[in-house]
Structure formats: structure tokens, C-alpha cells
Design a protein around this nucleic acid. Structure first.
Lengths: 164, 164
DNA sequence: ACAATTTGTTGGTGCCACTAACGTTCGTGG
DNA sequence: CCACGAACGTTAGTGGCACCAACAAATTGT
């Protein structure tokens, strides 16, 4: 009933604050996904950008930035790389000449498909120890935490497969 | 039934893979904690190292590295900083002259106390939207994920307050 | 017409996880 | 007993990521 401090216990496991657990698990998941995507020559943001363009349609880089949460400065190189490989087209917007309209190409959708199945597999690997119900519990809790801390950040929900 | 791909839906929220949610929440939590600790002139690893030393007693830097998961290269500067401020003592080990025995000092324990209460407050802030039960659910799921992916990594469990 | 804002872009900062290499010291097997 | 491999502390460096500042060009609001 004092402020009960632990005695030393050389053999006991270390007590971690929950936020540290989050970091560790997130790091591991990130790692797996990044390595997987690297095998396909892609990075996390390639996937994020393609998925956003596929789901929401063509849009300016700034809009894409707001939607994905990727900084518009960092988005430049991502679009460059995607454009080099023909997964995306960057064209000046006639209606507003400040903007570039970024559009996903058929090859881009094809690529996205590969990435999607890959990412899905990796998710299964990451969350393997959890049952389907538990995974839903987890994502539910995570969504509530996200909403709490960035109510106007990038929008989200659980993932569903991209259509051709 | 097919591989059901989403149609475009400009207004719908983006579908995020769970691993991305983990990253976002972890980033936010990390951010809050780091900023809080910075206010006390400390960093995450100061806290981690002090807590480990407090709970498990004096040990070599390599052992501390294994226990906390912090790379022994990165641990050097952490110990330097903690030693400068008198929170920790680094003495050559007479029995094994390769090693340094790192020991937490009374001032160190005092400092750890401040950090502990601070971190605890910040955890409350991070997990504010969740009830006590839900927090336990979450940490339970996280622990299982950690065990699955690094069964022999740094040991852990939920956190409890340090004793003076 | 003028101020404020948006957009794409460049360049730069700082943190963190991670690797490589090193001299030193210890343990072990031949 | 000594040669070799391994562990230790340390330094230096890499690469990715989040983030910021500033800019010119273009648009919007007033």
C-alpha cells in the first residue's frame, strides 16, 4: 500500500511499459513487411501510395500525402520511383497548374496486386499466434487508439483486397 | 467469392494493414514518451537501462544489452550519459578485465523514480481511451506476439513500480 | 490588386536500428 | 602452454524514416 517498489529479482523478466511492447511488436512487423516488399523491389510507401491511388482514384501529391500520412517532401521520391517503373503517371493538372495529377497505370495495378498478396501473407505471419477473433480485437483496440490520438490524421479501417 | 477487389470509393477511409496500425500507434506512443522523458533530460534508454539495473542488479554492459535489447554499441553513450550525471557507476570488473560492471547509484534510483512516475502518467495518456480490462487485453495480445517472434529476446512482462 | 495560402520540390536535421572492425581479455583444446 | 576462437567495450559508419524550413510558381480570398 506504500508505493510498493519491486525488490531486486535477478531472474525475473523485465517489466516493460506497454508502449515499449507496442514499439517492439511494431518494429518486428515493420521489419518483416519491409523485407518482404524489398524482395519485390518496393518499399512500404510504394504500397501505401498505390493502394491509396487505387482506392481513391487519381489525385494530387498533396492530397495523396494527406490521405496516406506520408510527408509530401518524402512523397516526391516515392512518386519518382513509381513513375520510373511505369506504375504511376505524373501529369500537370490543367485546371490548377500548381498540381500534378498522379494516376495509377494498369501495370501499377498489376504490381499492387502482387504487393497486396505479399503483404497479406506477411500479415498472417506476423499475427500467426492470434486467432481471427483476437486479431479483430487487436485491430479494434488499435483503431480506437489511433482515433484518440490523431482524429484528423489519415483515414483508415481494416484492409480489403484491391480489385482489378 | 472471386478475389473480390474493392471498387474505387473516393470518400471511403483507406484500408490499412494491421501492421501499419501498429506502427502508427507505436509511433505516437513513442513520441509522447520520448518528449516526456526529454523534459527530464532523459531518453528512452536511460529509463530502460536504469530499470534493468534496478530490477536485476549490477551487470556488465553486454549483459545489460542482452537484457534490454539495446545494442551494445548504442549502450555505450547511454552509460556515458548516465555516468556523467552520477546515476550509474562504471567500474572495471576485477574478475574479468574485459568487462565493466555497471551499478545504479542512490541518485540513479531517485532519478529512476521520477522517470517511472512520469512514464506511468504518459502510459495513462496513451491508453486513455481504453478501460483497464481492455488495456490488459491489449498487453496480453502484445506479449503473445512478442513471444512468438523473439522467444529468446529480452525478457519482459507488464511493468510494476520500482522500489526504493 | 495584393496578401495569404497551396503545391511541388530541394536540402537538411536528428534519431534509431544495425553492421563492421579494432584491440583487449578470457576460455578451451591440442 | 599456447594458439585459436569467442566475448567485451568501443568507434565509426550506414540507411531509413519522420520532420522541418524555405522556395518559386500558381491560385484563392478580399
Amino acid at each position: 500500500m506504500t508505493d510498493a517498489m519491486d525488490e531486486q529479482d535477478t531472474s525475473a523478466p523485465l517489466r516493460l511499459p506497454p508502449s515499449r511492447m507496442l514499439s517492439l511488436v511494431a518494429m518486428h512487423a515493420d521489419r518483416l513487411v519491409s523485407e518482404g516488399l524489398a524482395r519485390e523491389g518496393a518499399r512500404k510507401w510504394h504500397y501505401a501510395a498505390l493502394m491509396a491511388l487505387h482506392q481513391a482514384g487519381s489525385m494530387s501529391q498533396a492530397a495523396l500525402s494527406r490521405l496516406t500520412g506520408v510527408y509530401r517532401s518524402d512523397l516526391v521520391s516515392v512518386i519518382n520511383e513509381l513513375a520510373e517503373r511505369g506504375f504511376v503517371e505524373r501529369a500537370p493538372d490543367a485546371a490548377d497548374r500548381r498540381r500534378n495529377v498522379v494516376t495509377i497505370t494498369p501495370r501499377g495495378r498489376e504490381h499492387l496486386r502482387r504487393l497486396y498478396t505479399l503483404v497479406t501473407e506477411l500479415q498472417d505471419e506476423v499475427f500467426a499466434p492470434l486467432t481471427g477473433q483476437e486479431r479483430e480485437q487487436l485491430t479494434g483496440l488499435l483503431i480506437r487508439l489511433m482515433e484518440h490520438h490523431s482524429p484528423h490524421g489519415p483515414s483508415w479501417s481494416s484492409s480489403r483486397p484491391p480489385t482489378s
